[in-house]
Write a protein that binds this DNA or RNA. Sequence first.
DNA 1: CTGCGAAATTGCAACCTGTGCATAAAAGCA
DNA 2: TGCTTTTATGCACAGGTTGCAATTTCGCAG
Lengths: 202, 202
Amino acid sequence: MEGHRERKKARTRRALLEAAVRLFAERGYEQTTVADIAAAADVAPRTFFAYFASKEDVLFLQAEDRERAMLEVIAGRRPGEPLGELLSRMFEALVRSLAADDELDFALSPLRARLMVTEPALRARGLTLMMETQPRLAWALCEVCPELDPVEAGAAVGGFMGALAVAGLVAQQQGGSDDDVLAAGRRGIEVAVNGLSSLDRP
Amino acid sequence: MEGHRERKKARTRRALLEAAVRLFAERGYEQTTVADIAAAADVAPRTFFAYFASKEDVLFLQAEDRERAMLEVIAGRRPGEPLGELLSRMFEALVRSLAADDELDFALSPLRARLMVTEPALRARGLTLMMETQPRLAWALCEVCPELDPVEAGAAVGGFMGALAVAGLVAQQQGGSDDDVLAAGRRGIEVAVNGLSSLDRP
DNA sequence: CTGCGAAATTGCAACCTGTGCATAAAAGCA
DNA sequence: TGCTTTTATGCACAGGTTGCAATTTCGCAG
């Protein structure tokens, strides 16, 4: 990572990133144009696209890191570990990874989370990323659980993430705090692990 | 629905719809511009947006119908019916609703399904619709299952749909036929109903 | 049939994202 | 200092989308 060149590139990238995040936070996502971001970072508008493939991409930088964190947990499955425990550990790793945003002085995740609620374009992007990630998680799961076929692994990952996500979403729509949403997600995990049939007899 | 006016409006709408679908099928989604669609339907480009909010919207017309079909199944829950059976019936109603596309001479669903695999913009749109629908399904479920709190209902719906979707997605990525994908979805439902823990001991 | 008002259609201008291309500016190296 | 590889930029343009104003069409009352 040596060289004046590398450092300058990193500085420009960071300037764009910080400008974008600041403007998104100040005026909102739609109200901020790529030209605004470039101006705030003191580069030409065209240059923005040399660093980020799209305006949305600024907010989904660490997606690969987070996926990697989840894949590592799966790869490190303890012998005989139940699926539910493994995936729960995966989720906790994800939460930790979200809390420990690097690359910026401040946390990017809360802003992204907030904007994903209000901006359809960002919600769509986040969902797409998640949907692309899940088959890869399923594949990894398949490799450490020989007794699972790919479809079952997909069902496991999808059921787990779906329950988690929608439970959290409902909690959030009820006006719950961040902690409420997280707790709802954990409850969703229980339901996924025990099965919907477990809800039939309370 | 009387009147020359209404009929003409319906005809224009239909012309746009059929032109769009035909062009999407012939040249692909990205390769078809709104201007092309308007020209094929013999209206001004600007008029397209009087009938459809966006280019994507053409392909997601019956989304409300399908949601309604699912909500009706939930509302018609048989007393004491297990959650798994109810949601399975809901899914079969969805499949039926997809197979019986109205509004066009031909089936819109296969094209939409095909394009959603290849076109990121359409995949994103479909996911967004599904994610917006699920909390409403959860609400409806809550109303017919007094023993469920909203978060649990969300977990049930999310787990069910997530398992279904990702199991089907994996099957499709393995190169399975449409029937294979459907079968995988049904297997996903089993997993969701019985719980991930049921996969621990084969 | 005639004319008035509402609704539909259209054209125009503009904004925004994103891309291709060519060129200038800068940095590393000989 | 020259040469080469990046990087930054400017320009033009395609395509989706919206707002506005003008115009056409339709339905209906007189």
